[in-house]
Simulated assay, not measured.
Amino acid sequence: MPLNSRKNHFPHPHGKPRVDDVRVISGIIHVLKRGLQWRDAPQEYGPHKTLYNRFMRWSRKGIFNKIFMALAGERGDPDRLMIDATYLKAHRTAASLLKKGMFPRAIGRTKGGINSKLHAVCDENGAPLILYLSEGQMSDYKGARHILGALPKANALLADRGYDADWFRDGLRDRGIEPCIPPKKNRKSPRPYDKTLYRQRHKVENMFAKLKDWRRIATRYDRCAHTFFSSICIAATVIFYLNQ
C-alpha cells in the first residue's frame, strides 16, 4: 500500500509502538482472500488476535472504505459508467445476529435464501468507483437511488433493464449522463439505446467475478455490515488499484 495512503488514513500510534502495519495488513488480506478463520492465519503475520483486533477496530472507523474511495477518486472522470448488483450469500453465522443489534446487518431474505446485495458502479475498464451494500431483497433500481447522487461526470451509463425507470433516466440526464439501458418488456413505449455500446456491460459482471474470487466475499461470515463492507473495500483496492 502506498506510503501516503497509510499516512493519510491509518491512525497514528500513541504510546507503545504497534506491530508493523504492513505485516498486519498482509495478514488480513491473506485471511480474507482464502476465507480462513483468524486463528488459522500463518504465524509469519504475527498473532491472529492482533490481525482480528486491528481489522475490527479499523473497520468501525471506516478506514478501509476511505482508502478505497481515495484511490478510486484518483482515476478522474471516466468516459463511461456501468452499474449492476449481485447477491452475496450470508452464512448462518452472519444471519444469527438479532435484528435489533448494535450495528446494522444489511442481510435480507430472498428466493435464493439469506443474502446481502452489493450494488456497484465501475468505469469503462471495469474498476469499481462506487460500492453500496444493502439487504438482499432491495431491487436494483432502489439501490441506484442511493448511488445516483454520488455518480461522477461521464458521457454514458450502461445498465440492464432492471434499471429501466423514468426517474433514473431523468436523473442521469440531469447530471449530463446519457443512459444506455434496454427497456423492460412491459414498456408501452420502448426507449431506444445503443446496442453496440451496451455490449461493453460485461465488464461490470467481470468485476463481480473477480471480487467473488475472494472466499470471504463470495460467502459472508461477518455479522455486522461494516466489517463485511470493509472486506469488500479491501478486495476491490487490492484487485483493481494496487495490482495494476
Rank of each mutant, 00 (worst) to 15 (best):
H48K: 10
K33F: 05
M56W: 10
M69G: 01
G62W: 01
D77Q: 12
A41H: 03
K61L: 13
T50M: 11
F64N: 00
P42A: 10
G35F: 08
S26A: 15
R75P: 03
I28K: 01
T50R: 10
R60F: 08
Q43K: 13
Q37R: 11
D77M: 07
F68D: 00
G76S: 12
R34H: 15
P42D: 13
H30N: 05
G73L: 12
K33S: 10
L51V: 06
A72W: 07
G27C: 03
S26F: 03
L71K: 13
F55W: 04
M69H: 11
D40Q: 15
I67K: 01
K66N: 09
G73S: 14
R34C: 04
N53I: 01
M56K: 15
L36K: 00
I28L: 04
W38N: 00
N53C: 09
A70I: 06
I63S: 07
P47L: 11
R57Y: 09
W58P: 00
G73A: 12
M56G: 02
S26C: 10
L36G: 06
A70F: 09
P78T: 08
E44I: 07
P78K: 00
R60K: 15
L51I: 09
G35Q: 08
Y45L: 07
F68Q: 02
R54F: 12
L36Y: 07
F68S: 01
P47F: 09
M69N: 10
K33R: 14
W58Y: 08
N53D: 15
K49I: 11
G35R: 02
W58K: 01
K49S: 15
G62E: 04
R34Q: 15
K33D: 01
G76H: 12
L32H: 01
Y52E: 07
G35S: 05
Q43E: 13
K61S: 04
R75G: 07
R39F: 13
K66W: 06
P47E: 10
M69E: 15
W38F: 06
Q43M: 09
M56N: 14
M69R: 11
Y45D: 01
F64P: 04
K61D: 05
H48Q: 14
R60A: 14
E44V: 06
Y52N: 05
I63Y: 02
G73K: 14
G73E: 12
V31T: 06
W58D: 02
F68R: 05
A41R: 00
M56Q: 15
R34W: 11
Q43A: 14
K49L: 14
A72H: 02
Y52Q: 07
K49C: 13
P78Y: 07
G76F: 08
T50K: 04
K49A: 14
N53G: 08
F55S: 01
G27F: 05
K66T: 07
I29E: 03
R75W: 09
G46I: 05
W38V: 05
D40E: 15
I28E: 02
R75N: 07
K49Q: 15
E44A: 06
F55P: 03
I28S: 02
I29F: 00
R34D: 14
E74P: 03
D40I: 01
I67D: 03
H30Y: 14
V31D: 02
L51S: 04
E74Q: 14
I28C: 01
G46W: 05
R54E: 07
F64Q: 01
R57D: 11
Y52K: 08
K66R: 15
G35I: 07
T50N: 12
F64T: 00
S59W: 02
M69L: 15
